[in-house]
Write a protein that binds this DNA or RNA. Structure first.
Lengths: 112, 112
DNA sequence: ATAAAAAAGTTACTTTAAGTAACTTTTGTG
DNA sequence: CACAAAAGTTACTTAAAGTAACTTTTTTAT
């Protein structure tokens, strides 16, 4: 059984994007540098997994980590050029979602 | 903690694509209808998970299942219009991969 | 000087998803 | 009638993600 007749580069790109949270992390960083806590708050990702993902993305040259010696010290995460290059993919996903995803139920705590 | 300030439609689209194997299944179906076994062979996905994914994609109206009463009976999976509409996303992922993914090591069983 | 607070993680533990391989079902051919 | 092929399914193992409490560093308030 050949594990892939599919283009290995394409497969690699898909592997990055289909890892849980990765696409959302990149998407959020496309709107500008972000701090750790703002990402956990906005995305609803746990600190444990966000920390893991950011390290992986840093190793892949997609994200860079910036220590800002303010007080208290801030760590800012931002995209490298490679990271920014995901923008057209995100735009297509966004376009697709506008055409094909029905209005998502808001799932409120059923107010009165 | 608000679980999402991000557009829920976008989030939903990302949820589809970031589920393991889903993007590759759609990608393969973009090249034409496929049978169950050809997908397991080409993608290296297990039957258990492929079966699960195909059912989900059918429920989402992305894939359709076609029973062909030949002998032995063949089941052909193909994309609906909604499924085909992923094509531009796949094209962008492919473009990205050509620019940014380095040549992937072939991982041969170190032949002579 | 000491206590509490805030940011950025990390650790230990639980739950869920995916991988593996053997088995079932249906139809057909020798 | 036994065997083969396709399409799954079942039971079980392994890996990934979720949860929540804890650590570290530095600053502000008492």
């Amino acid at each position: 059984m050949d594990p892939s007749i599919i283009c290995p580069r394409f497969e690699k790109a898909v592997a990055i994007l289909s890892q849980r949270w990765t696409a959302l992390v990149i998407y959020q960083l496309l709107s500008g540098p972000q701090r750790f806590c703002s990402m956990t708050d906005t995305l609803g990702i746990s600190g444990r997994v966000l920390s893991e993902r950011l390290k992986e993305l840093e190793n892949q040259g997609i994200v860079k980590r910036n220590v800002i010696p303010e007080t208290p010290v801030r760590i800012e995460y931002s995209l490298t050029e490679k990271g920014v290059s995901f923008a057209p993919i995100m735009r297509e996903i966004d376009k697709w979602s506008q055409s094909w995803v029905e209005k998502v139920p808001t799932d409120e705590k059923s107010g009165s």
